[in-house]
Nucleic acid binder design. Structure first.
Lengths: 374, 374
DNA sequence: TTGTATGCGTTATCAA
DNA sequence: TTGATAACGCATACAA
């Protein structure tokens, strides 16, 4: 049975067992075409029989390539993370690569973590997810030759490969949906203005309104924080106004704030969507379970993860092709992934508007038919 | 500014810059007390100035210790995973260790992945989360000296350190709660019977009933699958019976199945908790948002993760103390973590019953007071 | 096509 | 207390 498991063996042992030199074993392991097919087969057989796996540290030290992808991530209980990581992990399962996960919470100095990661020289590439203030540092590393892809919605993608969504269009579609439901007084709760996506979503919202001949009303623009508390606060402010100043619909910058908004509405007895229709943004898992279920823009999180990692692996491969392996690590001022550096790809994935009860078109006559689907 | 970042430097460079030998630098880095304090300070200064971080691969190869903890995990979008990983990551943030994450989905051969992980000899310890069929293999590795902790609810903890909850007691409390609400016909939907936790929860349920003088009714025991579909199925079966054969309450083996159950109840117009009170198990995030919100047993997932990783680090430390470093990696038949091997600790954390609307005690007179909190 | 020899960056042994 | 040096396991330039 090939269940030896103990990786005690070295390439030397395999060489002895197969009656060849270490160099040949190494060549076989690295699929070097210069080795005789029959010999290769013999060696391969020994390798498999003994379940041999090269010592990765020795491999790297000797100038080989790691099969390790670094993932710099926020805490995994951020609502978008599980799905993103699912996409990443599923794609990686079909490859020889493994994940080295660096979760950065609040405690430690993020820049230090990043430096440690890179200085350890253990990873072949880095996937940076919502890196916050690290963006510019990351860009520098990328320019210096580190294969890197960023998933982010805070900084404007600039100077490095990026995967995300088309925020303006997504927000445009969300607002169009409310317009199509017959609403004309549509409010908006935006996120923190230092988030690039906040501005983009606001742009999309404005464009939809203007196309419908409606000038965005500053009175209907509320400032949130992308957290539930912000949604609650804005709801309180809004519902404290005279009823005639209420909007008939609201597009909320993210689902988290929408949850807070719905809570307050329920507490105050404001009916959703009869009194005010609500559309969110993100489609986190809870959104299908709120009361009422939330109409929202679905971000394709797992696909974002998949796409990002796919791009990263492509970059790594490209780099390996161009650079003679041994130099790959010595790349002083070298610029691997040349073309990527010159024009870093920005991949925007499509979102989907998921229509649920919070924005159902309510015809006056239909109010007593809870079962109606429109 | 100490923002050099580029880890090009080697210990040799630092040695030259500090005017000492590599050996001394190495000693300083490893806090070897035999080095002169003043000299140490001088070296430390150079290290910091240049932001030097040792090449981890060289360190390991030379017999040093890795600061890498392997985490063998199911897909991160499994509902319990984000919280478990939060606990793990938060604890690790305060340590010098990093996570190497191995997500095992359906695609690849799990045993192979495990072998590769260990053969790479890169990790100092392994945290195995819901390892499924790998339990026995893991036990073997643990017996052979691998610091290892398992978080699991499928296999009976045996032969290796384990962190989880007290299922019988938790189920007992859940059932007691329903009894306290005045119910006497209490059904149970159990999970797959090849899960150890399924049997344990059933035991707790039975004990509570018997203590109340009620003999568990086989007619009220339904077979689920721990998935939503199972909850739906059981609900359909139950509600298809004559009304007088319905239970007045049900304890469902996990929240996932409870979601399916609630869905069917809503579709059929069965009132929760008036017609039937529901208690689940797990307290996933959605449970607070179902209609009605679900009473359930909260598993302290993040604490489970924290506790497990804490135990693992303790084991690693213990091993490092006992074994002269250089041998640590050569440990042929050696048995590090001796005491742990002899009697692997099983840590059971307490659960909490979270009371929500799905099991509210409904007094006949209170039916028209939706706001009542009991 | 294959084998020999060297070096990767660190730790640890042995002398000094 | 410090320095020189031999591993560690692998990849590769070079020689055969």
């Amino acid at each position: 049975m090939p269940g030896e498991t103990q990786g005690r063996l070295t390439i030397q042992d395999i060489a002895r067992l197969a009656g060849v030199s270490k160099a040949t074993v190494s060549r076989v392991l690295n699929r070097n075409p210069s080795v005789d097919p029959l010999l290769a087969e013999r060696v391969t057989k020994v390798v498999q029989e003994h379940n041999f796996v090269p010592n990765i540290t020795a491999t790297v030290l000797a100038g080989g390539r790691t099969q390790l992808i670094g993932v710099l991530a926020p805490p995994l209980n951020w609502p978008a993370m599980p799905e993103i990581m699912r996409g990443v992990a599923e794609y990686l399962e079909g490859s020889p690569y493994e994940i080295v996960l660096y979760c950065i919470g609040s405690q430690r100095n993020h820049a230090d973590v990043l430096n440690r990661i890179l200085a350890m020289r253990m990873i072949s590439g880095l996937l940076a997810i919502f890196p916050g203030g690290l963006a510019s540092q990351l860009a520098t590393h990328f320019q210096q030759g580190l294969p890197l892809v960023m998933i982010d919605d805070q900084e404007e993608p600039d100077g490095m490969p990026w995967v995300g969504i088309d925020n303006p269009t997504s927000a445009y579609e969300a607002t169009r949906h409310l317009l199509a439901c017959g609403h004309t007084r549509i409010a908006h709760i935006q996120g923190p203005t230092n988030y690039h996506c906040t501005l983009e979503r606001y742009q999309g919202y404005c464009r939809a309104l203007r196309e419908a001949g409606i000038e965005p009303d500053p009175d209907l623009l509320l400032q949130g924080n992308f957290e539930q508390s912000g949604g609650r606060h804005c709801a309180s402010v809004l519902f404290a106004r005279d009823r005639e100043r209420w909007p008939s619909a609201i597009f909320i910058g993210n689902d988290e704030m929408a949850y807070g908004f719905l809570e307050v509405a329920q507490e105050l007895g404001v009916r959703i969507p009869e009194d005010i229709a609500v559309v969110g943004f993100d489609d986190y898992v809870i959104s299908a379970h709120t009361t009422p279920p939330l109409t929202t823009v679905r971000q394709p999180f797992s696909n974002i993860g998949r796409t990002a990692i796919e791009l990263l692996l492509t970059m790594i491969d490209r780099m390996n092709e161009k650079q003679p392996p041994k130099d790959g690590r010595q790349t002083a001022g070298g610029v691997p992934t040349q073309d990527f550096v010159v024009d870093p790809p920005c991949i925007q994935l499509a979102t989907t508007l998921v229509q649920r009860a919070s924005s159902r078109l309510v015809l006056p006559a239909a109010r007593n038919q809870p079962g109606s689907n429109l």
